[in-house]
């Protein structure tokens, strides 16, 4: 009987007034989202079925021309590469972020805040700036190449990009702060007594971590990985600047359609396809994790 009122609103205060107040509160946000979210989304879908005309123009229609173009091996290869790139980034960044988030959540308050400020500052940095910074860092005259030459690892100074590894490293860099911050709440909720209990029963710290802690954070880790896939599958600037044409992604195709070739309907179809694939992946993972977890 102690905490009865779960929603704050109790019927003590004129129940008939609530809908009016609520409507007043939500009218502006609803209008805002209808105009700026639902209508643009609808336009995007409509655009993907439109008829393309010369000079970057188009006319509303119900054509499948664009979607047929998606069925070419060329596009499918790029799409496959985009997802492979995203999955690889996900695995690497989660593997890296998990221990970092765990250690941060165990630090003293001041140290935690320092890390959080640092992470938030890099997280918010424009992809433009980070890509540019990596361009400088990996260039022949950047600090990294000089260090490697001085250490004798590299014989002659030459640029470390464009290639797949450069794209990979930069993408990991981009998502790492997001993932650390995403895992941080789950890590700080972890009860230290549980691995401690495992230790008292004879498990080594490493074993306790693997057998007790890891299963407990499986869910957040999976979600974090999924988040990385969502973030990077549409990546555009990083592969464009730090990669070769072999490393082009759907994101680059979409932006080319929109900005260079002026084929907006095709770009829209590619965007719709990309989002559909993402949603499909999301649904699949949900289905699998529900089937895999006992009664939850």
């Amino acid at each position: 009987m102690t905490d009865l009122a779960v929603p704050l609103k109790t019927d003590a205060e004129a129940p008939d007034r609530d809908p009016v107040v609520l409507a007043g509160l939500l009218s502006l946000p609803t209008l805002f989202l209808i105009v700026l979210c639902l209508i643009p989304l609808f336009l995007l879908v409509q655009l993907s079925f439109a008829h393309r005309e010369d000079g970057g123009l188009w006319r509303a229609g119900l054509e499948l021309t664009q979607y047929r173009q998606l069925m070419t091996p060329q596009f499918l290869k790029v799409a496959l590469f985009s997802f492979t790139l995203a999955l690889t980034t996900a695995v690497i960044s989660v593997a890296l972020a998990f221990p970092v988030a765990y250690f941060i959540s165990r630090m003293k308050r001041r140290a935690q805040i320092t890390w959080l400020v640092g992470l938030l500052s890099t997280l918010s940095l424009s992809e433009v700036l980070i890509v540019f910074a990596f361009q400088v860092l990996l260039s022949g005259s950047g600090g990294l190449v000089k260090t490697l030459v001085a250490l004798g690892v590299m014989e002659q100074a030459h640029s470390l990009y464009p290639n797949f590894a450069a794209v990979m490293v930069c993408l990991v860099y981009l998502v790492l702060p997001y993932i650390i911050l995403f895992l941080y709440p789950a890590m700080s909720q972890l009860d230290d007594d549980i691995p401690a209990a495992a230790t008292t029963m004879g498990a080594s710290p490493a074993r306790a971590f693997l057998t007790v802690v890891a299963p407990m954070v499986k869910g957040p880790l999976l979600s974090a990985g999924l988040l990385v896939v969502i973030f990077t599958v549409g990546s555009y600037l990083t592969p464009l600047v730090l990669g070769r044409p072999q490393q082009w992604t759907v994101g680059i195709l979409i932006s080319n359609g929109a900005m260079t070739t002026g084929n907006l309907p095709l770009a829209a179809a590619q965007a719709v396809a990309l989002v559909s694939l993402m949603v499909g992946l999301l649904g699949l993972v949900r289905l699998l994790s529900r089937a895999g977890s006992p009664a939850s």
């Binding site: 009987m1 102690t2 009865l4 009122a5 109790t10 019927d11 003590a12």
Partner: peptide
């Protein structure tokens, strides 16, 4: 008992 008190306070009708 708490519900009764909350009705006395006017927090519950």
């Amino acid at each position: 008992k708490t519900t009764l008190m909350r009705m006395i306070a006017g927090l519950e009708q």
